[in-house]
């Protein structure tokens, strides 16, 4: 019986303490002021959207990096084909490249270019 009464006493005390604690108004005001200050700091510190530079603008104008990559790849492929099989390229053009280049064809003589440069600037 004593144990039951002790349990009842404990439960009564716990139940009394379970009542909702009401924070005083000045504490609520302090907490809300803290919240407003922290919120303002965090909003001010949030990174602003970055302005795109001229390179990004150019790339965007060409259709994005994917399009730029495609153009670059096509250029490199054309150059490689020209070096690897210049006669084939000339044949595809119907001999136009040969005719327009004055017989130099698609692959100028590298040695001739070198000699030409020396004739232009003379011995140093």
């Amino acid at each position: 019986m004593t144990i039951e009464r002790d349990d009842a006493a404990l439960e009564a005390a716990l139940a009394a303490a379970r009542g909702r604690t009401i924070p005083p108004d000045d504490l609520v005001a302090r907490v809300l002021a803290d919240a407003a200050r922290v919120q303002a700091e965090q909003m001010a510190a949030a990174p602003a959207p970055r302005r795109a530079g001229w390179v990004q603008g150019l790339v965007a104008g060409m259709g994005g990096w994917r399009a730029v990559s495609g153009v670059s790849l096509a250029g490199v492929a054309g150059l490689a084909m020209g070096f690897a099989a210049p006669d084939l390229v000339d044949a595809w053009s119907g001999g136009q490249i040969w005719a327009l280049s004055g017989g130099a064809g698609t692959m100028p003589e590298i040695g001739a270019l070198w000699d030409g440069a020396w004739e232009e600037f003379g011995d140093v």
Partner: peptide, 20 residues
């Protein structure tokens, strides 16, 4: 995200528990 009312609702809910 800057909502001005969120702090008030959270304070009403959580401050009594923290204080208690």
């Amino acid at each position: 995200n800057g909502d001005p009312g969120a702090a008030r609702v959270l304070t009403e809910r959580l401050l009594p528990r923290a204080l208690g």
